[in-house]
Simulated scan of single mutants.
Amino acid sequence: MVEKKKIEKPVTKPNTNRKKVTFKEWWTKTVKFFKDVRIEMKKVVWPSQKQVIKHTIVVLTFTLFFTVFILLADVIYEQLIFKFLLKIR
């Protein structure tokens, strides 16, 4: 008979080399992060109010169109399934 060999997985030790971060170090890193965020936000090119309104109208129009399209497709498929395939109603 063929014996099944146990495959031993290597034991991984938890990472004990991590240095504990003091509150002061954490605070300086946090302050630096928010300063960097502020600098990057100044570089952003924001759209004008006219562009925002235009794009909002486009999104709402497409949403309305696809909502109606899916509603009509659902009604048509429901009628096809119930009337022709299941012969109910």
Rank of each mutant, 00 (worst) to 15 (best):
V31N: 09
K50N: 05
R38F: 10
T22V: 03
F69R: 07
K13N: 03
V11G: 01
T61I: 06
K35L: 03
V58S: 11
L71V: 01
K43Q: 13
P10S: 15
M41H: 08
K83Q: 08
K32T: 15
W26T: 05
I53S: 13
F66G: 02
E78N: 10
I39E: 14
F34I: 06
P47K: 01
K32L: 10
V37S: 08
N15L: 11
I39S: 15
K50I: 06
F69T: 02
I70T: 14
F33T: 07
K9S: 04
V11D: 04
L71G: 09
K35Y: 01
F34A: 03
K32M: 09
I57T: 08
I81E: 01
F65I: 13
F69D: 07
H55M: 13
S48D: 08
V68L: 14
K9C: 04
V37F: 00
V75K: 14
K42H: 00
Y77R: 13
T56K: 15
Q49C: 03
W27C: 00
I53G: 01
I76N: 03
W27A: 03
R18P: 01
S48F: 14
K13V: 05
F82R: 14
R38S: 08
T22I: 02
K9Y: 06
T61W: 09
D36Y: 01
T61V: 04
V58P: 00
I70P: 00
